[in-house]
Amino acid sequence: MPGRLLRLLSLLQSRREWSGRELAERLGVTERTVRRDVDRLRSLDYPVIGTTGTAGGYRLGSGTHLPPLQLDDDEAIAVALGLVGAAGGGVSGMAESSMSALAKLEQVLPARLRPQLAAVGSSAEAIPRPGIPQVSPGVLAVLARCCRNHEIVAFDYDGRARSVTRRRVEPHQLLTLGWRWYLLAFDPGRDDWRIFRVDRIAEVAPALHRFTPRVLPAPDAPTYLVESFTSAQYQHSVHLTVQAPAATVSATFEGVVRGIVEPVDPSSCVVRFSVDTSAMLLTQVAAIAALGPFVVDHATPETAALIARVGERLKQSFG
């Protein structure tokens, strides 16, 4: 009996709402037994809320006391690894907070899981990547809440080229790519979808007005983000013909997807990419050059001169 109650509690914590039939099927009991078990949880001060009607069911409400969080073995290790990874990410102050949370998690886990969690905490460490912009966890929390609640949000945005502007948008989803955080939102003032770097967002304020979510012009948010990067025109744009298979060249764009690779034949391809810094340009060109000879088909004069100048310096350095 205690084991089934813990399993029921774990199911209620795993998603917002369950029907009685779904819970009965998962637990291998009758719906009447589910109702009795729910009553037992309520007697233990767990705020299980029941809804009526054809779509009625059960959900775990918020109460004055936080109920114990039930995690199975794999979930506990997944949380631990996530905390270790967060320590090396692009969110400011997360290293100390993640390790503190990991220590608290170890204290409340069953004895059989503590050695595994201790091994993760002592043997795994995420190395922060230098130069990655840090975002405020408070800003992320507000934006995430507004995305979930379909609530309009206002903020100051440092667009660099256009200085700081006050924006009022309909937030859709937070995304992370290449260790950077992005907000995908619809901007009514510009009547179009926009992608904002979260590290350039400040003075976030929910507008306390709800909106009806719009249909995204892409299969999903990650696809929209990647397509936006591949079609954007940054300061340095270049087209190359590379004597290497397209699949091999595509692998060089892992992490920050801003390149388009099109095969010419089985042993060569055309690469088009656009980046906003000379350092990133040279990094991509150098990675491609390591795969095979290439020809610059198109580039702005500044970009072409930069590639030629660095190439000549490398040639002189190695005689």
Rank of each mutant, 00 (worst) to 15 (best):
A86E: 03
G138C: 00
S267L: 13
L314Y: 14
D192V: 03
Y157H: 06
W181Q: 06
D158C: 11
V108E: 11
A221I: 05
S163H: 10
L71W: 01
H150W: 11
P133Q: 05
G138M: 00
A119C: 07
S278K: 08
D74K: 08
L208I: 10
G20V: 09
P301G: 04
S62C: 09
G178Q: 07
A305G: 11
A246I: 01
A251P: 00
A308I: 06
C146W: 03
L184W: 00
R313A: 13
T248G: 12
V295R: 15
S317Q: 14
K104S: 13
L12Q: 07
L113W: 02
S19A: 09
P47Q: 05
A251E: 13
P245R: 04
A101I: 04
V135G: 00
P219A: 11
R7K: 12
C147L: 02
H172M: 07
E96I: 07
G56N: 04
A86F: 01
V48N: 00
R194A: 08
L174V: 09
R313D: 14
N149E: 15
Q235A: 15
A86Q: 11
L23C: 05
A124P: 03
V238P: 01
T51R: 09
L177M: 14
R214G: 12
S98C: 02
F155K: 01
A299N: 03
A118G: 11
L105S: 04
G61F: 01
S278C: 00
L81M: 09
R59D: 11
F318N: 11
V153K: 09
L27W: 01
L11I: 05
V204F: 07
A304G: 11
M94S: 13
V169G: 04
L8E: 06
F196N: 05
S19T: 15
H236F: 10
R167T: 07
R148Q: 06
P133R: 07
S97Y: 03
P47R: 04
R148P: 00
R129P: 00
Q235K: 13
A185G: 04
Q107Y: 02
F229K: 01
R40I: 12
I288T: 10
E125I: 15
R16V: 10
L12V: 07
L117K: 00
P219Y: 05
Q173R: 14
E302G: 11
K315F: 13
A287D: 07
S268T: 14
R21D: 12
P2H: 08
V256L: 15
I127E: 13
A154P: 06
F186H: 14
Q70A: 11
F211G: 03
A119S: 13
T52Q: 10
A286L: 14
H209A: 15
R197C: 06
Q107C: 12
D265M: 06
G121A: 14
R214L: 11
E312F: 00
R168A: 12
E302K: 09
P67V: 00
L282M: 15
V295E: 14
R313E: 13
